[in-house]
Amino acid sequence: MPLSDDDFGVEEEKAGQNLAVLAEALYLINLLLLPGLAFALLFGLWLKYKDSAPPLARQHLKQTTFVSLIGGFLIFTLSGLILTLGGLAWEWTWVILILYFTCIHSTLVLFGMYALIKAMNGQTWRFPLIGPAIDNPQA
């Protein structure tokens, strides 16, 4: 059977797949385009659906919400610490700060891209190191 015109290889094969994709998209938008605002939407979605959504969506909502919080903590507190300890007028503060920010931010984005692909394919995925445990790995 020919594929439909809007088929990008993303079909709602599993319940909650669209919500899972939305959660991952908001996670990435929070990092790349609308920091804060996208997280507020994501947090709202998590609050609303954390108990009622299908397992797939629930996992992605949980992963993205918690990783956004931990990621935000990693970005802002450690950047703040580097700034506080080094001071604005020391060149090495900026060397360390910009490298740290770029590396941690890019890593979070890359993980988010991979998680988005997993959501698009109806699979769960735990963010390495900082992602909360998967409740039911079979979901």
Binding site: G9, L110, M113, Y114, L116, I117, K118, M120, N121, Q123
Partner: peptide
């Protein structure tokens, strides 16, 4: 392109 490559390999 990154999403494309990983998505196709995943599928």
């Amino acid at each position: 392109m990154t999403v494309f490559a990983f998505n196709m390999v995943n599928r």
